[in-house]
Nucleic acid binder design. Structure first.
Lengths: 136, 136
DNA sequence: ATACATCCTGGAGTTAACTCCAAGTCAATA
DNA sequence: TATTGACTTGGAGTTAACTCCAGGATGTAT
C-alpha cells in the first residue's frame, strides 16, 4: 500500500508518516526495490496503533520506547506490559481532566442558555463555578 | 491573594499566570498600589476556569475569544453560549479519541499480561488490533 | 535604613510534534 | 524516450504554549 493510501486511511500527512518512521514511532516500513515505501499489513497496523494512541494525547516518546523494546525481542515483554499500563494511567488521568472540564462547561452552558432566553445571566453558585458574572 | 498563592492553589507557574493575563486568557488582574498582582475572588475564579479548561486541552485561542466577548458586555451572551457549545463538542471529540485508545490499550495489556505468565504473546485478532506480533 | 525575598516588564528561548522545502529519484503514460 | 507526477532524503522552519532571563521596583524583617 502506498504512503498516500495509508495517509487517507488514517487521515494523516505523508510528512507525518515519514516523521514517525524516522524517529521510531513505528518500525521501518517495507520498501519497493526502488526504495519507495510499500506498507504491509503489519506496517499498517503499526500506523493504526500509533495514530490512535497519538490522537489520545499519548506522547511520542512513549511510543518510541515501546517500539525500541519491541525490537529488542521477547525478553522485553514484561517491560512493554509495564509501559502500556503506565500509558493507560496517563490517558485515564487525561480523561478525568476532560470530565471535570465538561462538568464545568455544562454548568456554564446551562446558565447561558437561560440567559439567551431571559436576557440576563444568573449564576448559580453551587451548580457552576463561574468567574464570569455579568457585572451590574 | 498573591500570585504565588494562586499558583500553588492551581498548580501552575507564575510565568504561566502572567502569560495568561498578557495574552487575554483571563481578564486583567487586580493590583496593589505598587503594581503587584493581588488576585480577587473573581480573578481566582477566572484562573480556575482557565486552568481547568486548558488541562482538558481546550485551545488558548478559544479562551481568549471568550474573554474578549465577555468584555464586550451582555450583548455577546448568545455568542458566548455558542462558543461554549463549540468548545464542548471539541472536548467531547477528544474524549471519544481517548476512549478508542483506551479500548485498544486494554486489549494489548490483556495480551501482554497473559504473555508475562506464559512467556509468549498470543494476539487475538478480534479483541485487539495489534501490529506487534512476536515474530516467529 | 538596609538587606533580602518577591514581584514587575518586555522580550528572547524552549519543547513537542509536526510541516515545509530543495534537489534529486522512480514509475506510469503518451 | 520524454514528460509528468508521486516519491525520496536531510535539514530547516513553524506553531502552540509555555518558560526563562535581565534589569529594575516593591515589601517586609531586622
Amino acid at each position: 500500500m502506498t504512503i498516500k493510501a495509508v495517509c487517507s486511511k488514517f487521515n494523516v500527512s505523508p510528512d507525518t508518516l515519514r516523521y514517525y518512521e524516522r524517529v521510531g514511532v513505528i518500525p521501518e516500513v517495507h520498501r519497493t526495490s526502488g526504495g519507495i515505501r510499500d506498507y504491509t499489513e503489519d506496517d499498517i497496523k503499526w500506523v493504526e496503533t500509533a495514530t490512535c494512541f497519538r490522537s489520545a494525547g499519548m506522547p511520542i516518546e512513549l511510543l518510541i520506547e515501546y517500539v525500541r523494546l519491541f525490537r529488542e525481542g521477547d525478553h522485553t515483554i514484561k517491560a512493554r506490559c509495564e509501559l502500556l499500563k503506565e500509558a493507560r494511567d496517563l490517558i485515564l488521568a487525561e480523561r478525568r481532566k476532560i470530565d471535570d472540564a465538561l462538568e464545568k462547561m455544562d454548568g456554564k452552558i446551562k446558565v447561558y442558555e437561560r440567559a439567551v432566553e431571559t436576557g440576563r445571566l444568573e449564576w448559580d453558585d453551587n451548580s457552576c463555578c463561574c468567574c464570569n458574572k455579568s457585572k451590574e
